[in-house]
Design a protein around this nucleic acid. Structure first.
Lengths: 239, 239
DNA sequence: AAGTGGTCTAGACCACCAA
DNA sequence: TGGTGGTCTAGACCACTTT
């Protein structure tokens, strides 16, 4: 492998491996060739392959099992990684997701800019409710450009048990990369207050994230609102 | 350096460097010895030192400047590790800490229970302001039992540039362990509104943490309020 | 026993920055 | 020019899992 554009070798390896994963060269939970073999394939040493795989493991594109191999990771959902626990019942609970609806809206100025679209472009708005032990604890709203996700339907979302990452990949060929999450405190607006069954202006923890595909193109804008009055939320270390 | 308890060398180096930082061997924004020198000191190679420093840089305990050196990051304190960036100026900024005051108060019922004290026990209340690029972005309040920290004074806190962890260890022999942080959204009370210069009831991101010593005894209760209107905050991945 | 990931080394070269 | 971080190698050994 040559030094192109002054890019370090390990970054080139990241791109190559990522491309192979996207091309479906190895299936989910199927093991990649060993680090040594990958090194031979790309003409770099095992250490360099390892550094590249480290990055992809950190992004949870891959996972490793010592003594066994490196595997293509399944895709868990992209928002709401973390521990949730009700204060009244402080066990580590996995929240249940309830799909509320999927409607078509049009992008306002800000949203259009964020997603790199023209103003007024069609978007899917998907809303989901989060419950822990039956109690409503959060609301998630996702916005996806209709152009990239034609004919997105509730039925299809439901079939995948709410795993939108996998849906984007399987049905639309869009492989999402986790973006960074911004944490904010906001007041409940009318829509949030109604859906979360809280008072207007009640403070909520807001998580905002822009997920891009691996070419860097913005694909999904997601916002979540969490009730933190009775809920302990601790962001996860990653996957 | 020997292989103790089957711990990899780089993890031992992490612990050693972390301990040295906590002990104040190098001041904030002061450069560490070079990677080669650290390798000689710990009896490991440069590559191993590098792997250890990588982890500490990822946790923003250290930062690097290519061609110059590796430095101790500000905010080696125990709350609010993470990246801060103003939306108007989205560079990774290191917040400055401004000590507001240190007064003696008495524990209410809840606080007494949390810290394992009797009601009305004397506590030190330390308040600090966080600024990024001059702007006020956060307020931190720490509560420490007077019995364990006799004669805590502002002067002593100031001398250590706000590193309360180090003060607890050096002056009082209390070695603090990071606890888990709970993230909440709350409305600004009168005290917070005044100190942060925001409206009453403005939503704020609240971080709450109970730090214990290594025997498991609660020692410091800390609460921080962050303005998230113009500030992007991303919690850091900690060890 | 064989194959994998996990760690570590000694040495090398480059890019960057300061004096 | 000299020192620093940033990258890379070839080879080695260990720990773990499967056969």
């Amino acid at each position: 492998m040559k030094k192109l554009a002054a890019q370090p070798l390990y970054k080139q390896v990241i791109r190559e491996v990522m491309a192979a994963v996207e091309a479906g060269e190895w299936q989910e939970d199927e093991s990649l060739p060993s680090e040594v073999e990958l090194g031979q394939r790309f003409g770099v040493s095992q250490g360099t392959v390892r550094k590249a795989l480290d990055a992809l493991v950190a992004e949870s594109v891959l996972y490793r099992r010592q003594g066994v191999g490196t595997f293509v990771a399944g895709m868990s959902d992209f928002l709401m990684r973390g521990r949730f626990a009700l204060l009244t019942d402080p066990k580590g609970e996995v929240p249940k997701i309830e799909l509320l609806g999927c409607v078509k809206i049009h992008a306002g100025e800000q949203l259009a800019e964020i997603l790199g679209l023209r103003r007024g472009a069609a978007l899917w708005q998907v809303r989901r409710l989060l419950r822990v032990a039956g109690q409503i604890v959060g609301l998630e709203e996702l916005l996806l450009p209709e152009a990239n996700f034609p004919e997105l339907e509730m039925r299809r979302i439901r079939e995948l048990k709410g795993n939108l990452r996998e849906l984007c990949w399987r049905d639309f060929g869009v492989r999402l990369q986790d973006g960074e999450t911004r944490y904010r405190a906001v007041c409940a607006g009318s829509a949030e207050a109604r859906l979360l069954q809280v008072e207007l202006n009640e403070p909520l923890l807001q998580l905002v994230r822009l997920a891009k595909d691996f070419s860097g193109k913005p694909q999904v804008w997601s916002v979540a609102w969490l009730k933190t009055e009775e809920l302990a939320f601790e962001p996860s270390v990653s996957a």
